[in-house]
């Protein structure tokens, strides 16, 4: 079993990764074959001095914050609620998970209709609450990222929800009963018994979510293509634009590698923090 896997792993993961590392040191171009001229560290220097690189990285981190917090909190809340139902539980599980199976293109299209200017549901909805001139949800630099984050939360909350549901199955009934006998109310049981016991699940959910959010591309590319005025452009789109639109593969490789380092760094820091917290307990 190992050989086919190793082959695929080499051809489709290790190989491209090595190529990326190498191309980052060359002025590789999409419009010419071969690696191109040796560039040394000039790509790295240029990327680190490129305001657009830092801005897109900022956008990516902002998106990560905007999505990770609600996606962790909301999925926990939904899982706790859905778990309380005895009859019709399957329906709530299905209903909350359903959006996650939609392809990114469908979600983007759906929300482009909802966020549409003048004709969209979202503008109409805020008008009911007395806002006369609703913002252009995807056209206003102040709102575009928030709008995309909201759509993303709706779309992907189901995945974390399922992980939490699985975690909840592992909380033994006896613990609930013991806490109830000791006089803990439902809210206290959740706060002091269930949530702490879900600690490992929370770690997993958060790490997976942070990594997923740092890799955001599809829905932003389809809904705003990074606009308006670059206010939603994530790092991955900078890589795509420089690599495939402008054909500067060497530069794009450098950016990808740096993004890879950032994601690795964020994940490691998170794991280290969690490990320490677990030890202290």
């Amino acid at each position: 079993m190992l050989l086919p896997f190793a082959l695929f792993y080499l051809v489709f993961l290790v190989g491209p990764l090595i190529y990326t590392v190498i191309a980052g040191f060359f002025d590789t171009s999409l419009l010419r074959s071969g690696l191109g001229d040796f560039a040394g560290l000039s790509n790295y220097k240029a990327v680190l001095g490129d305001a657009e690189f830092w801005r897109t990285l900022g956008n990516t981190l902002w998106f990560t914050v905007l999505t990770t917090v609600p996606l962790v909190v909301l999925s926990l809340v939904l899982a706790l609620l859905a778990d309380r139902f005895v009859r019709g539980r399957w329906f709530f599980r299905f209903a909350f998970f359903a959006p996650f199976v939609l392809p990114s293109a469908v979600v983007s299209l759906l929300f482009m209709f909802i966020y549409a200017d003048q004709l969209g549901l979202a503008q109409e909805a805020v008008k009911w609450f007395g806002v006369d001139t609703p913002p252009s949800w995807l056209g206003d630099p102040d709102w575009a990222m928030l709008s995309i984050a909201a759509a993303t939360v709706w779309w992907t909350v189901g995945f974390n929800f399922v992980l939490y549901l699985a975690g909840l199955q592992d909380v033994p009934r006896e613990v609930h009963e013991a806490a109830a006998i000791d006089g803990a109310g439902p809210w206290q049981r959740i706060r002091h018994v269930v949530v702490p016991m879900l600690g490992r699940t929370t770690t997993l959910v958060t790490v997976l979510q942070v990594i997923a959010s740092l890799k955001v591309f599809d829905q932003i590319y389809m809904m705003t293509s990074g606009g308006p005025d670059g206010s939603t452009r994530p790092s991955l789109q900078l890589i795509y634009d420089t690599g495939f639109v402008e054909g500067r593969v060497g530069y794009a490789s450098t950016v990808s590698l740096l993004l890879f380092v950032v994601i690795l760094f964020v994940s490691l820091v998170w794991f280290a923090l969690v490990r320490r917290a677990e030890k202290e307990n």
Binding site: A116, D117, Q118, L119, S136, G139
Partner: peptide, 10 residues
């Protein structure tokens, strides 16, 4: 100043 492509035609 707040119209997209389809909106402008509409």
């Amino acid at each position: 100043a707040n119209t997209d492509g389809k909106g402008a035609i509409t």
